[in-house]
Amino acid sequence: MSVHSTPIPMIAHKSGPLAGVAEVPGDKSISHRALILGALSVGETHITGLLEGEDVIDTAKAMRAFGATVTRVAEGDWRVNGVGVGGFAEPTQVIDCGNSGTGVRLIMGAMATTPIAATFTGDASLNKRPMGRITDPLALFGARAVGRAGGRLPLTLVGAVDPVPVRYTLPMPSAQVKSAVLLAGLNAPGETVVIEPEPTRDHTERMLRGFGAEIDVTDSAEGRVITLKGQPDLTGQSVAVPRDPSSAAFPVCAAILVPGS
């Protein structure tokens, strides 16, 4: 699977030749998912353009803790040798997700249907955020969560021994919750169904399909219905992370402020 980006043009000053190239970082959401899906695949996933911010690096460390081999080759160039669906090993250390709500929620989903336990924490900000909207649907698979009052981190998640597929309607739009449920559904037999009354970003569905999962998306009176067939054989892929348009806004605005640029 390859997700390609559009090159960002050079920024020119009015009085001279092109001054240089504005290097726009890769998309954070896709970077998280590339690492996690690579770890859940068999074989090697080659990722280029990975965002090397702290949030994504924490996810890379977490995938190593669950048994995947994650190697940085060069700037933005990473290789992940995965353990396959259901192949996560129990980590020997606490999983620190820093400030990343996306990272912790997706990782919880990815491990929730494997019979292992993991303890998650984060920085002061992340530890204030309740995780109930993730742990509640994961409990339907058979996972158990024990944390501070309000379901806050630090939190220990015990994966389901005999996971069951679920049919879950999102109570509010959330690509993170949807993604966590779909990742949990990977290691559950049968079909896991997520219903979105209002559509959210579909990075996870597209990338799951690219890694070899059987996933179907249809529109109905209930909303968007996403059906995932459990226990697929995911295969390592080449992923070119596209650059993030929101990050591109900064150099674009800087160029606009320079007369004649």
Rank of each mutant, 00 (worst) to 15 (best):
S5A: 11
S15P: 13
G16Q: 12
L18M: 14
A19T: 14
G20Q: 12
V24F: 06
P25I: 04
I30Q: 10
L37W: 01
G38S: 00
G38C: 02
A39W: 00
A39C: 08
H46S: 11
L50V: 01
E52H: 13
E54T: 02
D58N: 15
A60N: 04
R64H: 04
R64W: 01
G67V: 06
W78L: 09
V80C: 04
V80K: 06
V83L: 14
N99M: 02
L106Q: 06
T114N: 15
P115G: 02
P115Y: 04
G122W: 05
D123G: 02
S125Q: 15
K128P: 03
P130E: 10
R133I: 01
I134W: 10
A139T: 04
R144G: 03
R144C: 03
V146I: 13
R148D: 04
R152Y: 00
R152E: 01
L157F: 00
L157D: 02
V158Q: 00
V161P: 04
V166D: 07
P171H: 01
P171G: 02
S174T: 10
Q176A: 05
V181A: 07
L182Y: 11
N187D: 12
E191C: 09
V194R: 10
E196W: 05
E196S: 10
E198H: 13
E198C: 09
R201L: 07
R206K: 13
M207Q: 06
L208W: 11
R209T: 09
G210M: 08
F211E: 05
F211D: 05
D216G: 00
V217M: 04
T218C: 05
A221M: 06
A221F: 01
I226P: 14
G230S: 11
S238P: 10
V239N: 02
A240S: 09
S246H: 11
S247K: 03
A255K: 13
A255G: 15
